[in-house]
Amino acid sequence: MTSAVANSPFEAPKSGRWLLFGWLAFAYLIAAQAISIAISPPDRDMGDLQKILYIHVPAAWNMGICYFLVAIYSMRYLWKRDERDDLKAAAAAEVGTLLNGLTLVLGMIWGRPTWGVWWAWDARLTSTLVMFLIFAGYLALRAFVDEPERRAQWSAAAGLFGAINYPIVYMSVRWWRTLHQVQSTPDTLDPSYALSLRLNAFAILFIAIFFIRRRYEAALTERVAEHELQAAVLGGSSRG
């Protein structure tokens, strides 16, 4: 049925412009950081430690976007059974887990000199850690299961289970009494802090988009190679 030449149901991606996008994203991050440091005075309570805000909060927001993508592509996979949706969900989960870890580590580094402790088992910190562990489990699951279809099905379920934690993490400071403060608003931020935060939020967003795209391309290239190998072993007559 399938010809000996096109043994994969889809083609390997060609990434030319995405690399340029990546360079621009990193250049923009550096510019955003430089501008933020230049225009924002030290906070009256915590001095220059306030500048951790410019990565900690964007990382937290963008991990939410990544996990939202995981949920969307996982549902789409379960609906349409297109292998590429599974790979997109996985790429978003990888970047989301990275940002989740960054949020936790920066939060700890910030907490020690300001709150006085590295960690507190309050609802916000605990739920953020739980979400990180679920997605670490998601990535481990993908590494353990070899068969693509089963891996995709289990991952979609695990990804949805993990993603529903984000709204809980976001609302935890409002639902429960925590050591972590509630979200700041433009009214509670010095205008220069609010502007800097927005600049950096977009910087991390662009980098997250770039990473997701690159990880997806890598995964897709690998799957295409696997499809072709399988077809070659089976004599090119079946996709197994």
């Binding site: 906070d43 009256r44 309570d45 306030q50 709150w115 006085g116 050591l179 608003t185 509670t188 220069s192």
Partner: peptide, 11 residues
Amino acid sequence: MIKHSNEYRAP
């Protein structure tokens, strides 16, 4: 432990 508010202000 310090429980910081959600306010960040310049001096």
